[in-house]
Design a binder for these strands. Sequence first.
DNA 1: GACTAGTTCAAACGGATATTTTAAATTATG
DNA 2: CATAATTTAAAATATCCGTTTGAACTAGTC
Lengths: 229, 229
Amino acid sequence: MTANRADGLETRNRLLESACRLFAEQGYHAARTAEICRAARANVAAVNYHFGGKKQLYVAAWRHAIAQSVKAYPLDGGVPSAAPPAERLRGHVLALVRRFLDARSLDMKIADREMLHPSGLCAEVMHHSIKPLREMLEQIIRVLLGPDAAPEAVRLCAMSVHAQCHAVMAHERRLRNMPRDGRRRPPPLTMGPDALAEHIVRFSLAGVRAVRAGVRRGLRTPAVKGGRR
Amino acid sequence: MTANRADGLETRNRLLESACRLFAEQGYHAARTAEICRAARANVAAVNYHFGGKKQLYVAAWRHAIAQSVKAYPLDGGVPSAAPPAERLRGHVLALVRRFLDARSLDMKIADREMLHPSGLCAEVMHHSIKPLREMLEQIIRVLLGPDAAPEAVRLCAMSVHAQCHAVMAHERRLRNMPRDGRRRPPPLTMGPDALAEHIVRFSLAGVRAVRAGVRRGLRTPAVKGGRR
DNA sequence: GACTAGTTCAAACGGATATTTTAAATTATG
DNA sequence: CATAATTTAAAATATCCGTTTGAACTAGTC
């Protein structure tokens, strides 16, 4: 009997990488297996041989992307959990923004598309991709907000922070997807990941402190008019 | 000669409404003309008779959605442009969040899908939908940041505010799209649009003030370790 | 060096689905 | 009632894509 051959694993890996990229760029439905194979310099039959079908390839590719991302960008950003919460937030946001802007980190892009146009596969993987992220962020913010903070307040602040990081990715993707010659493209990101993260951290720390102050005083502010019809 | 018939306009309108809804829920590619017609209680041929094809229907429906939204939710939220900038921001955010959460406001949902999966049609309409929004927001923030603010700082703060409003819509959509019986659904929005807007305004006003303070002092903060491989 | 199972390949399969058109039937309106 | 505007059902059109197959190939083993 002969052992598995080395070249087999190589094409399997190429397939995995191409699949990550194309699924991230186009989503499960729009990405064509033929194109994935072409990008991987493999025959169309390779997908079925190595993975058993497009669906299984999708799940495998997503898992692969997640593994790569968390290895490259630990969620705490390298800041120990004993550090002051402001520093931990900085680490987390920086790691997140870098990850979002790294063209090789594809898991969040896949997750994003899955949200908008679910393939029906892998609700499993979805949570695996997103849950730890939210938990870490909420944990940090809980400390920042202090012991009296309502769970609602924590969730809202986490949303505010995450939304900003996410927006950076969305903006960058818009730049990529736009036709190169389009006269009216959105203004490019003139700054690098670190400067962007810096803004988000400063903005958010102040925001969280304001919410903390508001919670303590039980503030409510007047409504504003203007509604539907 | 007989004039155009009334029933013709009626089905044309029903078609427009159904198209808005389905294009917003599924995007241009995934939405089927047959389903649009079924929802509008019209024959499949109706799309071609009234609009000349799916593409033209898409553009017309989007325009229709935009018109409805701006009529229902004026961008200034009813706050006069002479009001203090904090009030104007409150008005703007409140209008935006209400609009994002109103199931009948579909233009932003269509735009959102178009961003992620462009149909290639109507870069025109896209800008028509988004540009005025960004301009109003940046104008308000420019005042809040003061005369010394760099254009970059204005753009970043506008991004921070808009991202939060957008996240609200995204979260609500996730709730809709999730399988009803999914054990693990994201936590629902327990609060109404006004409370959400209230949080965003408080968070953002503090954030903008912090950025303003940082700009004045020319602050820069130290980098944090943790990167790619 | 030959054997063999793991791997690649080109070509075709099979199936599905959507948009658009057509021509006849119907209806509102002047 | 006459007529052009709509509606209708069915056929036409246009793609297209994931998967299979059986033969050819090749790395690794004996």
